[in-house]
């Protein structure tokens, strides 16, 4: 490290920073720094994705090795679309997704506004908001499964003490859907709340004060001023929430194993069952490709038409 001969000249040169001493070019340095990430993502994301694509167009039945693995055209997809279980799972995934994503925003935004209030209990509120987000989805499902228990669950105890009838929550399809939505919204509104909360920290206080001075009601300043400012954070939350709702597996698996009567059989559950019940990897891969394409399509739609960029 030789000393700079003329520091002033160096300062003038700042805009395109030129580092001294046999450095690699930017592109070469970038290549070496990104190589480990590229290898990991390539080997453990891209390669699996390519093999799943390949399998989805081939026969691949583990239980019938005599068939070999011949090219199968789009037959796996044709059979998939013809299967009532696929259509049921697709429908379940979509409508449970709409219910839980909408629910997580309806709950998540208000709890972020509450947790953002100054006061003595701010830290406590923040931990209450973070807890469901940080908890394994499986744990949330198991905790609620016990609270929704038909005989000894605390929710039925509250219902009976109000003079209402106890319900068979996890055994009746429509009630299981309700229970699933409660667990999922409890768990995921915390994520929406978290992103909203971090969005709120970037909102300058004087803007809201200016709105108040201009005579806007709290309600107006929320809709007209705050919400547009939060839009970037909320649109990111919407994309992430939608993707995780499409892929949902842990909660229905731990809550009712997809039952009762397939009420909670989502695409994720159906793929898992296709893999472990029939060992038909051609069929399961077709489902995986469909799930991935669905996520891509919806995200593309959001980015193109909702965010407008």
């Amino acid at each position: 490290m030789e000393p700079q001969k003329n520091p002033q000249v160096a300062v003038v040169q700042i805009p395109p920073p030129r580092f001294k001493g046999g450095d690699l070019s930017d592109n070469a340095l970038a290549f070496w720094l990104m190589l480990p990430a590229a290898l990991l993502l390539g080997g453990l994301f891209l390669y699996p994705l390519v093999t799943v694509f390949w399998s989805s167009f081939h026969v691949q039945k583990l239980l019938e090795p005599g068939l070999g693995e011949p090219f199968n055209g789009i037959k796996n997809f044709v059979e998939m679309v013809g299967d009532f279980r696929f259509r049921g799972a697709l429908w379940n995934t979509l409508y449970l997704g709409v219910l839980t994503v909408a629910g997580s925003f309806l709950v998540g935004i208000p709890i972020a506004l509450i947790a953002n209030q100054p006061g003595r209990f701010r830290a406590l509120a923040r931990v209450a908001l973070l807890l469901p987000w940080a908890m394994p989805p499986v744990f949330s499902a198991l905790m609620f499964a016990w609270m929704f228990n038909g005989d000894y669950g605390v929710f039925n105890a509250w219902l009976t003490s109000l003079g209402l009838e106890a319900k068979r929550w996890l055994v009746t399809p429509s009630l299981a859907v309700f229970a699933f939505c409660v667990v999922t919204i409890w768990k995921t509104s915390s994520f929406v709340g978290l992103l909203t909360l971090s969005g709120l920290q970037g909102v300058p206080k004087d803007i809201l004060e200016a709105a108040e001075v201009d005579g806007a009601s709290k309600w107006q300043s929320f809709w007209r001023v705050l919400l547009p400012l939060l839009a970037p954070a909320l649109s990111v939350a919407l994309i992430f929430r939608t993707l995780s709702a499409l892929q949902v597996f842990d909660i229905p698996y731990a809550l009712t194993s997809g039952g009762p009567d397939r009420a909670l059989e989502t695409l994720g559950i159906l793929i898992y069952r296709t893999i472990f019940e029939s060992y038909d990897f051609g069929a399961s891969s077709a489902l995986c490709v469909t799930l991935f394409a669905l996520g891509l399509a919806i995200t593309f739609f959001y980015v193109r038409f909702v965010r407008g960029d």
């Binding site: 390669y47 699996p48 499409l246 597996f249 994720g268 793929i271 891969s285 995986c288 490709v289 991935f292």
Partner: peptide, 8 residues
Amino acid sequence: PVIAMMVP
């Protein structure tokens, strides 16, 4: 989706 990567 993580589930797509499971078998590979």
